[in-house]
């Protein structure tokens, strides 16, 4: 039973805290929760913000469209029984994004870990080296670097110039060749391994030096020590980096947008999922479809994160040194 003094107590207890939380709560309800629900609703419509009054409820059509695209069909039957053309680039954008994420993230983490291990030795000037290695990460997300990247990997770019002096001839334009263009973006991502490296370095510092000493007394070589001590003790950090980088990589946009000149590049070879979403929503005004795409993206990221979390029971150890 709540009596009057109980209510008074409740308010005295909570008022200050909720006042401090007011901006965040407002932001959560107005800019996150409501938009999420609204976006879910829009995903079942053909909403176009230039003609909001002609919006129609089209059921699962947006999702059907994506499904048909993944299955490689050219037409699908809409909820009204019409034959509708499939968004044939949806499948392409999924392929490009999956390839990008599952190549760039592991490579980035491997490079970050290798460099972190190298730097965790007691060397002079490590903080300086760390700073230099962080510079690409500091600047890599900027439009300036994306523009520069175009230049480096063009036919007459710096990379071909360098390869030319090594004796290679007939080099392609890496940026505009659909076979290679995605790999220039992957390279750009791997180049920015600085944050992961710093997190690995912090994790490596937590591993007690005695473990390595004991292992070398027992005759374990460096490789053995790395596999049996470093990797298991660092596994929580690897898990953290892996999840953050995957979530982040799925949402990449700027670099592909700039390098493709606002489109998906030659033969849509760099049509990232988010870029396709942007083009559908803001070039073709298919905002209902863009909302549905966003929800599928959320499900994909959520699903992959969940799988990694579940699998971590077998490969992440939270033993000593945590």
């Amino acid at each position: 039973m709540v009596n009057k003094s109980g209510i008074a107590k409740f308010f005295r207890h909570n008022t200050a805290a909720y006042l401090f939380l007011t901006p965040w709560l407002l932001g959560f309800f107005v800019l996150t929760l409501y938009p999420m629900l609204y976006s879910l609703q829009l995903s079942f419509t053909d909403y176009d913000f230039t003609q909001p009054n002609s919006t129609q409820w089209i059921g699962l059509d947006n999702y059907r469209n994506m499904y048909a695209s993944v299955r490689g069909e050219t037409k699908f039957t809409s909820s009204t029984g019409e034959e509708v053309r499939v968004d044939r680039y949806y499948k392409k954008s999924l392929e490009v994004t999956f390839r990008y994420v599952f190549i760039s993230v592991p490579l980035k983490l491997i490079v970050a870990l290798a460099v972190a291990v190298l730097m965790s030795q007691k060397l002079r000037g490590v903080s300086f080296y760390r700073a230099v290695y962080y510079i690409p990460t500091l600047l890599g997300g900027s439009v300036a670097i994306a523009v520069l990247w175009r230049k480096l990997f063009e036919k007459e770019g710096l990379v071909n110039d360098f390869l030319g002096t090594l004796g290679f001839a007939d080099l392609p334009s890496w940026i505009t060749n659909p076979e290679y263009s995605l790999y220039t973006l992957i390279l750009l991502t791997v180049w920015q391994f600085g944050s992961s490296m710093i997190i690995f370095l912090a994790g490596l510092k937590q591993i007690p030096q005695e473990y390595y000493e004991a292992a070398s007394v027992d005759g374990a070589n460096k490789v053995r020590q790395f596999i049996s001590i470093t990797i298991p003790l660092l596994s929580p950090v690897i898990l953290f980096n892996l999840i953050m980088q995957i979530i982040y990589a799925f949402q990449s946009f700027t670099q592909a947008y700039i390098i493709g000149g606002g489109k998906g590049g030659v033969l849509n070879s760099t049509l990232f999922y988010t870029l396709h979403l942007y083009i559908q929503g803001w070039t073709y005004h298919e905002l209902g479809y863009a909302s549905a795409m966003a929800w599928i993206l959320l499900l994909i990221i959520g699903g992959i994160t969940a799988v990694i979390f579940i699998s971590s029971r077998w490969w992440v150890s939270y033993g000593t040194g945590e």
């Binding site: 909720y18 959560f28 966003a294 993206l297 994160t305």
Partner: peptide, 26 residues
């Protein structure tokens, strides 16, 4: 200390991982 702190904190952490695209159109 306030009523619902654990819940709000969990929600806040959840929004950290939420891809911005689901709120983009609205």
């Amino acid at each position: 200390k306030f009523t619902g702190r654990g819940l709000w904190f969990a929600i806040m952490m959840g929004t950290m991982m939420l891809p911005g695209h689901v709120t983009l159109v609205p």
